[in-house]
Design a protein around this nucleic acid. Structure first.
Lengths: 230, 230
DNA sequence: CTCCTGAATTCTGCATTCAGAATTTTACAT
DNA sequence: ATGTAAAATTCTGAATGCAGAATTCAGGAG
């Protein structure tokens, strides 16, 4: 029926001998819908019709509804009893508040990451960073954006604190849609890339305070970039 | 069949004319199971049998499964594909990490709460605090514990940052079970109560830094109280 | 007695179905 | 023509059913 669904079905065609991770349908659906929301393919405030969406995804309502519950607990959608789900609308204050919390979390992570990351891991970050720069130069928006997010996530996870990672990820995910829409202007992109350069250098120098400062500064910049787009 | 279930059905027997909040079954179930886990009525690491539990609650598997997905995304249970759910076992490091993050979050909240809370709201905290002291004196463990948690939640929410509230709540909920089991010894309880006194005074003096310090110190104490109970 | 193999049972994952709430449409009165 | 009421439709919430994976248990070989 819809070719798009294939990506749901053939989870791991490359299965050879090792196969520990076997994604369940609802997990895939969570990720899928999350992406749709982030990339704006489901408009903000729009009511999500279960029947329509599950037909679109080629699944039944059961796993879809499970996914919506999860997304609701992540704060991406609002779930009104008997009236279904809608993409959550973020106010300016919501965004501002999230960035404040993210600042504190990233400030916490800076020294930890510089202390705990191995040289090998730092090289990985550098590698992602360089790839990102490439996409920046060629103006490939989506890959650039995804690598950008990946770097942030990695920087936090290198701190070695799983809970920090978790809560950071929740807030970061909520911000993604706004960021994706906000980072449009040329000078904004340039400023963001410069911030990343500074973060990268701080990490390679293993200067925790400097990394913290750079990340906090980057988030301040993020606010400037998005505040008028909400 | 089971009298306990009634609390699921008659959600609001006192319904008169206003009835905006109508809890859905799965929401009630989330809360219910969460409490069961926190209070240790489902042992840690125990596999949760869907059929058994939903019979126990008198509901079908559908809302139960939805609830489990939500609890999994909160990190209270682990969900292994085809193998069901089990209560997540926290390691010492998990607990330590959570407390570290909570420290940063509460340190962030201190000044904000002192700045944003109204006099009325501060009086409310005081009221809860005094009630809690009563339960401490009469050794009523569960009410004491619940008020204690409520005070922490309120202190954070008075900061006026919804995201801060959210992530704090997620981590706090995860810790609840450990805390509930850990806070057993007499001198531990006394120390915790003293910490709360200090927090209370700092808040009433609207001294943000002092409140932050008191809360961070309290969490340090929490670690001492629980670290041997894991 | 222990270990391996495979049948039987149990349990999960997803689809389908049913009941009730919300929304839309339609008919009627003013 | 407009506003209201009621019927019809649509949609959500929850239960049930079914297929396949995982666990358990029985039996036989070493």
């Amino acid at each position: 029926m819809n070719g798009e669904l294939n990506t749901l079905a053939d989870t791991d065609a490359s299965t050879e001998a090792v196969r520990i991770e076997r994604p369940t349908l609802h997990n895939v659906v969570v990720t899928r819908i999350r992406d749709m929301i982030i990339e704006g393919r489901i408009p903000v405030g729009a009511r999500i019709h279960e029947g329509q969406l599950c037909q679109q995804l080629g699944i039944s309502r059961t796993p879809l509804r499970e996914a919506l519950k999860v997304l609701a607990s992540e704060g991406l959608v609002d779930l009104v009893p008997s009236r279904g789900a809608m993409v959550r609308k973020l106010t300016r204050k919501d965004a501002r508040d999230m960035l404040d919390v993210l600042s504190h979390l990233e400030a916490m992570a800076g020294p930890l990451t510089c202390q705990n990351a191995t040289d090998e891991e730092i090289r990985e970050v550098r590698s992602l960073h360089d790839q990102m720069l490439e996409f920046y130069k060629t103006r490939e928006r989506l890959p650039y954006f995804k690598l950008n997010q990946q770097i942030h996530t990695l920087l936090i996870s290198l701190a070695g604190n799983e809970s920090l990672c978790l809560v950071h990820d929740i807030l970061q995910t909520r911000m993604k849609r706004i960021r994706f829409i906000g980072d449009q202007k040329e000078e904004s992109l340039l400023a963001a890339v410069r911030d990343h350069e500074e973060m990268m250098e701080a990490l390679e120098a293993r200067d925790g305070e400097r990394l913290s400062a750079a990340m906090v500064n980057h988030l301040r910049g993020t606010w400037e970039r998005i505040k008028n787009a909400i």
